[in-house]
Write a protein that binds this DNA or RNA. Structure first.
Lengths: 122, 122
DNA sequence: CAGTATCCCGCATGATACTG
DNA sequence: CAGTATCATGCGGGATACTG
C-alpha cells in the first residue's frame, strides 16, 4: 500500500540521463550552432567561442553517440568532416530553445535576486 | 559592417547562466520535489534519494540566492526550516518539466542510438 | 584539416565529525 | 533538526605537442 510516487523515481533518472546533456555548456552551444545547418569541424570551433579542440571533439562524439547529430567524413586531402543534426537533434532543439528563451526573459529577475541576497549577507 | 550574429553571443551567455542550473542534477531534483509544496530540510533530504547533507545545503543556498525558493527559519527547539518555491521557481518548473517530459518520451531513441554506436565501434 | 596523445591542475563532491 | 567545518579525491577540462 505505498502511496503513489510523486516524482516517478525511475523516470527521473531517465530524464536526468538526457537532461544532463543540457547542463553541459558545450553540448548546448554545439547543438544550437548546428541548428542553422551542416557545419565542418573548424567552422563549429570558430562559432563556439572559447571551446578547446579536445572538448569539441569530446562533445561531438557524445552527441553523435546519443543520436543527436551525424558525422560524415569525406576521404579527401586534407580531410573534410561535416556535422549535421539528426531529426532527433532538431526535436531536442525545441524544448531546449524554450528553456533558453525563458532564461533570457527572466535573467534580470535572477540577477536582482542575487544582488538582494548578497547585499543582505554583506 | 558585421554580419548579424546568429546566436546572439551575449544572450547565449545569459541563457547559460540560468540553464547551467538545469545541468545541476541536484538542483533540478530539488526544484521538482518542491513543486508539490512546502517541505522541511529533512523531508527534502528523504525525498531526493542519494543527496548528501552537504550538497543539499549547497543546492538550497544556490536556489535561494537565485530567487527560486524561500527559506523560512522557525526559532523553535529543535529548529524547523521550511523551503518553498517562489513564483519564479514555479515558473521555472514549466520549461524544465517540458524538457523532462521530452527526455522521458525520447529516452528509448537515445538508448537505441547509443547501442548502435557502441556496437558499431565494437 | 581534424583529429589523438599526454600531462596536469583545480574544483566539485563525498565522507566524516562536530554544534547551536 | 539543520546545519557548519575539515579533509580527501576523482576527474572535467585546459595547454601543448604530435600525426594521417
Amino acid at each position: 500500500m505505498k502511496p503513489p510516487e510523486r516524482h516517478l523515481p525511475g523516470q527521473c533518472q531517465v530524464a536526468n540521463d538526457v537532461i544532463s546533456l543540457v547542463g553541459d555548456k558545450w553540448s548546448v552551444l554545439v547543438v544550437s550552432t548546428l541548428g542553422s545547418g551542416t557545419l565542418r569541424f573548424s567552422e563549429i570551433k570558430r562559432a563556439v567561442e572559447g571551446i578547446s579542440q579536445k572538448m569539441l571533439t569530446t562533445t561531438l562524439r557524445g552527441l553523435e553517440r546519443d543520436g543527436y547529430l551525424t558525422r560524415t567524413v569525406y576521404p579527401t586531402v586534407p580531410p573534410r568532416v561535416e556535422y549535421k543534426l539528426t531529426p532527433l537533434g532538431i526535436e531536442l532543439l525545441g524544448p531546449v530553445s524554450a528553456l533558453g528563451n525563458w532564461a533570457i526573459a527572466n535573467h534580470a529577475r535572477v540577477l536582482a535576486a542575487r544582488r538582494a541576497y548578497d547585499e543582505r549577507a554583506e
